[in-house]
Design a protein around this nucleic acid. Structure first.
Length: 934
RNA sequence: GCCCGGAUGGCGAAAUUGGUAAACGUUGCGGUCUCAGAAGCCGUUGGAGUACAAUCCUUGAGAGUUCGAGUCUCUCUUCGGGCACCA
């Protein structure tokens, strides 16, 4: 029988499912290997050819690791809470759970067709109450924890209470809110329960606080920083504004340093690490206090302004100080004479959107408050300004202006005619621009004159600290993550309110189920959708929290659930976590760099602090698969003088001769840019009578690379390819396309080549009459060489994630063996094993035809590479003369190293070049002559 | 502006530590088989050159190191990604 891929693939997919071939068990006799894909959000559109790319790569890797004797965990699930299902619910009234269920079924059907070796017993869905029970549980642990800087880890809140009982707040070194009360144990003892709760909330790792948030009116919810791009929501692209709201937050800032340091221990793509480093944004510097001239602490609440700087060494060059317009002291420090100017400036700033403010970096603007501050190092009195180039949200919202060392400060000083003071002898041309050098020695700088950068910084930090005027400080750009969303389709937060304070429900009351509501919109009073739920209160009297958790909550720990997916008493058993530990290989898109991948590391570190998990980092090795873009085709419709489309279409090469407009055309009716006109008429009936202006008898279409989307008619559906060529061809072709990490447009053109290869491979095992035919016996040298070349190559390629080169090598190997008319059982059997990771269905079929037990192929040993089979009697010996002319000599293998040199020099061709002379220089690399210089 | 990553035939690409650039696939062209098509098989497909060959040139541009550079160093061009009044 010819290669009947449809029957073969259905047969083996059924076999794997029925026999649960890929069910993973804890088995300590084998080393474990955990291969994870980023689980998908099941969208209604189903899979296009780009989606499975990463899944195929991880499946090839998983199957390969099984052959190598590893106990492989390779699960799959769905990140099934999210906005699209909810938006759909708003439009249609259909419950998001139903939409989600339908979409998941579509996904599963499509995934199954590709022949993945997932262990579906471990499937998870983040919207399943049995799953989100544990997401809520993690939330509770966070609420019950604080970050102790002394032990540098999260601890149970009871250890904080003990500290308060014993010594008040004095001993406590914690990551907490800025305004925490300082109190004695006796103060603590007399506090009411409510006061205590209020105080503790400032320390909890998840907390409720009034904070400035990104509010998206169109979506009716707040968004985390990573969900906002350039002032617009990442999902939907709606405008986002700043707003003050009571919000749940996660104290991820407590882990800033550990998240940063951990990056050095994991094998991730450098760009992703770099993005996380940027996001965390560590800057080492100092905070310095500038006394306010003539300030009364009793009236103002303070008598100094604190600034953060990374260049404390430039402090003698300070010629002014700037506050952010939103700084809380601005109003109090504005003198009556400046009030109008300052208020105008603030109004002006407010009008500018966040976007404008970021985009407009050239205009210098600001206003003088009328107040002065005193430079602590030299007692100099400098002006206090406000300007919108200073951001309220970073550092202290106040900056010292050093025009000679910072270009922005320089521009500001020039614009408002403030002094520019040189502070380093190495600074050049400071009349023209700032010079941020750290070279040279200080001048005009009081007690650091003559010192160099490192020394000066040290001296200043000590000097300032001794006088209580400042100290060395590390600042992080990363803010705490906003955790609440005013949406329906997410995990309910397991909290109720009593006297305005939040309390956790009891652990045994989990999961707190998402209540049913009539409409998926905010209430008339502006409360989140959960406000519509009737009879939904805690102990029939207390209100539940109405926000739900953000999309990243469920995905921040899911890899642990796979370890023990059906556990009802813990998120995963201790034994399972101990055995599977962490993810060895994680494959997914780079778009999650500062979202999912950062939050996951955060929760993982937290769970480790509490002793629930083993490893500090969850994902040892990360691969970012590239995006597959669409490749759109166009036809060109001739446009008449009025700009109206006519009924004439012109081929790509001739379109310049007419006025045309381009129309998308379905890529599935175009082959090698040649339009199938008959199919086109069916696709666009309005052009049934159209005239086609052809070139060389063909209609050529235009091409452009765009995002794959239905509206652009450039979506290639894997189902159709599987129908025409089979899953094995699709799998191999996707791997063949190019390096896994590279983004590229999809082009179905080359798929024939892979299909031909699989047919050739099938033919190797059959005679002319398509009867299965292999021969026992001893393989020839040439056969063994071809086989062992591919054994080695595939092994090396997979280990370095170079899947595309493996596919090429398979083609070469099969061509060689076809040439050799190889029918040898031993050779062909090994070949089946080697190929089975890429094309599992056809290999299973051949494996069983070879007389092996069905399904055993996935767990046999990968053939051992034997270098001795690679050796030939003669070897080809390239040599260059004068680094230019190349000679290819053929030498006997039997030669000793010393004899090789003799053989080379006495070779006829070499002699021709030498013309009787001895070479001036003989260059030997790894014991071989590679070049002769004459 | 700053930080990463790229640039190799018509196209996708290969070249793992510096050692015969373009493997493998595709497209195009020619042939074979066939009533015909599909499928298969064979040849050819970077450029110059020639009757055939020999030979020379070619990895975005320019320089450098080296016997030898797609690979290493510097400068530039350009494309992609990230960050961006971050003090």
């Amino acid at each position: 029988m010819d290669y009947q891929f449809k029957e073969i693939e259905q047969k083996w997919q059924k076999h794997w499912a029925q026999n649960q071939t890929f069910k993973a068990e804890q088995d300590s006799s084998k080393p474990k290997f955990y291969v994870l894909d980023m689980f998908p959000y099941p969208s209604g559109a189903g899979l296009h050819v780009g989606h499975p790319l990463g899944y195929i790569a991880s499946d090839v890797f998983s199957r390969y690791k099984r052959l190598k004797g590893f106990n492989v965990l390779h699960p799959m699930g769905y990140d099934s809470f999210g906005l699209p299902a909810e938006q759909y619910a708003i439009q249609t009234g259909q419950h998001p759970a139903l939409t989600t269920e339908t979409n998941i079924n579509t996904y599963r059907k499509q995934l199954d067709q590709i022949g993945f070796s997932f262990d579906w017993n471990r499937e998870v869905r983040t919207s399943d109450p049995a799953y989100y029970k544990w997401t809520q549980w993690v939330f509770m642990q966070l609420f019950n924890s604080w970050y102790n800087l002394e032990t540098d880890r999260a601890e149970d809140i009871t250890s904080l209470i003990e500290k308060f009982n014993a010594a008040g707040s004095a001993d406590v070194k914690a990551v907490c809110d800025e305004e925490v009360a300082s109190f004695l144990p006796s103060d603590w003892a007399v506090m009411s329960a409510e006061q205590k709760q209020e105080e503790l909330l400032k320390y909890r790792l998840t907390y409720l606080r009034e904070s400035t948030v990104n509010w998206c009116p169109a979506l009716g919810t707040v968004l985390a920083n990573d969900e906002v791009k350039d002032g617009y929501s990442e999902r939907g692209g709606h405008p986002v504004e700043q707003k003050k709201m009571m919000q749940w937050s996660m104290r991820i800032s407590a882990y800033a340093e550990r998240l940063l340091q951990g990056l050095n221990t994991i094998d991730w793509p450098e760009p992703v690490k770099e993005m996380q480093r940027n996001w965390i944004g560590k800057s080492v510097g100092a905070s310095v206090r500038f006394k306010i001239e003539g300030a009364d602490a009793a009236v103002l609440g303070t008598d100094y302004i604190e600034v953060f700087t990374t260049r404390v060494d430039t402090i003698f060059g300070v010629s002014y100080l700037v506050l952010a317009p939103e700084h809380e002291l601005v109003a109090a420090l504005t003198t009556p004479g400046q009030e109008v100017a300052i208020n105008n400036y603030i109004t002006q700033t407010k009008k500018k959107s966040e976007l404008d403010r970021m985009a407009d970096t050239k205009t210098v603007s600001g206003a003088f408050t009328g107040s002065y501050v005193i430079n602590p190092v030299n007692g100099e009195c400098v002006q206090l300004w406000i300007a919108d180039y200073v951001l309220a949200g970073y550092g202290t919202g106040a900056v010292m202006g050093v025009p000679s060392g910072d270009q922005r400060d320089w521009l500001f000083a020039r614009h408002f005619d403030l002094p520019v003071v040189q502070i380093l002898d190495a600074q050049k041309d400071i009349e023209l621009q700032a010079d941020a050098t750290k070279e040279g020695k200080y001048l005009n700088s009081g007690f650091i004159n003559g010192l160099r950068y490192a020394e000066a910084t040290q001296t200043l930090n000590t000097w300032l600290e001794e006088r209580g005027a400042g100290k060395a400080k590390i600042n992080y750009r990363m803010r705490d993550a906003i955790f609440g969303r005013q949406r329906y389709w997410g995990e309910p937060i397991p909290v109720y309110f009593k006297d305005g304070l939040p309390y956790l429900i009891k652990e045994e009351e989990l999961p707190l189920l998402l209540p049913e509501i009539d409409k998926y919109l905010p209430t008339e009073t502006g409360e989140p959708p959960l406000g519509r739920a009737e009879d939904w209160s805690y102990e029939d009297q207390y209100d539940y929290e109405l926000s739900t958790m953000p999309g990243w909550a469920g995905s921040s720990w899911y890899w642990y659930r796979y370890m023990d997916a059906n556990n009802g008493t813990a998120f995963a058993s201790k034994e399972a976590i101990q055995y599977w530990k962490d993810v060895d290989l994680y494959i997914g898109g780079a778009e999650h760099a500062t979202g999912h991948l950062l939050y996951s590391r955060f929760w993982n570190k937290f769970l480790k602090d509490l002793g629930y998990v083993q490893e500090e980092e969850p994902f040892k090795k990360l691969i970012n698969q590239g995006m597959i873009q669409g490749r759109s085709n166009f036809v060109y419709r001739v446009v008449d003088a009025d700009g109206k489309g006519t009924n004439t279409l012109v081929s790509y090469g001739l379109r310049k001769e007419y006025k045309t407009s381009a129309l998308h055309v379905d890529v599935n009716i175009v082959e090698n840019e040649i339009l199938n006109i008959e199919k086109f008429k069916l696709f666009r009936p309005e052009f049934e009578q159209a005239e086609f202006i052809l070139e060389n008898g063909k209609y050529i279409c235009g091409v452009e690379v765009e995002k794959m989307s239905k509206s652009k008619f450039n979506v290639v559906n894997p189902d159709i390819l599987i129908e025409n060529y089979g899953a094995d061809t699709l799998r191999m072709y996707e791997m063949f396309l190019g390096p896994i990490e590279q983004s590229k447009p999809w082009n179905t053109n080359g798929i024939e080549g892979v299909f031909k290869f699989l047919r050739k491979f099938w033919r190797l095992f059959h005679n002319e009459a398509w009867v299965f035919h292999v021969e026992d016996g001893v393989p020839s040298k040439a056969e063994l060489k071809a086989l062992h070349k591919i054994i080695k190559k595939v092994q090396d390629d997979i280990e370095r994630f170079s899947f595309n080169t493996s596919v090429s090598s398979f083609m070469i190997a099969v061509n060689e063996l076809t040439e050799l008319k190889c029918k040898n059982r031993q050779v062909l059997e090994d070949l089946v094993v080697v190929l089975s990771s890429y094309a599992p269905h056809i290999c299973e079929e051949l494996w069983s035809l070879l007389g092996h037990k069905a399904g055993s192929l996935s767990f046999v040993s990968y053939p051992e590479f034997k270098p001795e089979y690679m050796v030939e009697d003669e070897f080809s010996y390239p040599i260059s003369v004068n680094g230019k002319t190349r000679l290819n000599l053929s030498l006997s293998l039997a030669l000793e190293p010393s004899a090789i040199e003799q053989a080379v020099l006495s070779n006829e061709d070499v002699q021709k070049y030498l013309e009787g002379k001895t070479p001036k220089k003989v260059i030997v690399v790894k014991g071989r002559i590679v070049n002769l210089v004459i």
